[in-house]
């Protein structure tokens, strides 16, 4: 049974890295998967910037074509509707940040399968997500703008390269509380892949929530080996 998974949230919560890694995991399991770059509000660090790598890993990429890849306009990729309506295999949708970015999905509501799963990504060390009140407001704002009620939360609290196991733990606790407020399950927790082997206490911290190990793909220029 194929699935449609939509990742939305605030700016900088890590939606794109989560989407990329989630799509790669599906592909590794041998599933046919398409990732849709629906981010019309962020100028850098987008799924389209690692298109080649995704294609090489067997992930189909739907993103604005190269000639308008850097256009300073809210450009949507061709064929989105077709992919959402008739796409074969799994579809992973990376939505732009904030209610503004989520509006794009709102405009495609009629093309979404009724069983599409909206997952809200939370990084509790980002602005506007640091209190339960703020975070609830963020969930309401983004999901109503997207026209897709959330089916669950993704705990993705991190500090980039400085992320420690305590941040994961603190983030899970926060996201858990947010889930209680909203009546939503925490379905996944983002964990930087370099923490996987480093900490034996990780399983205890995760407490049964499935981890999504995150390899960073959207690199700063000095982090590349090119």
């Amino acid at each position: 049974m194929s699935e449609v998974t939509v990742f939305y949230g605030l700016y900088g919560s890590g939606k794109s890295e989560v989407s990329i890694n989630y799509a790669l995991r599906l592909a590794e399991k041998g599933r046919a998967v398409t990732i849709v770059d629906l981010d019309a509000v962020t100028p850098y660090f987008r799924v389209r910037d690692v298109r080649e790598r995704l294609l090489a890993a067997g992930v189909n990429v739907v993103s604005p074509k190269d000639s308008i890849r850097h256009a300073d306009l809210p450009v949507l990729p061709e064929g989105i509707r077709t992919v959402l309506l008739q796409g074969e295999g799994d579809v992973v949708v990376d939505v732009g940040g904030d209610p503004t970015g989520a509006r794009v999905l709102g405009g495609l509501k009629d093309a979404l399968r009724p069983d599409a799963r909206g997952l809200f990504v939370v990084n509790a060390m980002r602005p506007f997500s640091r209190t339960l009140d703020e975070a609830q407001e963020a969930v309401r704002g983004v999901t109503s703008s997207a026209g897709l009620p959330p089916g669950g939360l993704v705990s993705n609290t991190h500090l980039g390269e400085s992320t420690r196991i305590e941040h994961i733990a603190k983030g899970l606790e926060f996201t858990g509380s947010l889930g209680l407020c909203l009546g939503l399950p925490v379905v996944m927790v983002g964990v930087p892949d370099w923490l996987k082997s480093r900490d034996e206490g990780l399983a205890k911290v995760l407490g049964g929530v499935p981890p999504l190990y995150l390899e960073r793909h959207l690199l700063k220029p000095w982090e590349t080996t090119e």
């Binding site: 700016y11 900088g12 990084n123 060390m125 980002r126 602005p127 640091r130 500090l159 400085s162």
Partner: peptide, 14 residues
């Protein structure tokens, strides 16, 4: 406490 910030947001807060 550390926060994860975009450069633009961080300059505004600062």
């Amino acid at each position: 406490e550390s926060m994860l910030m975009k450069g633009n947001e961080a300059l505004a807060e600062a």
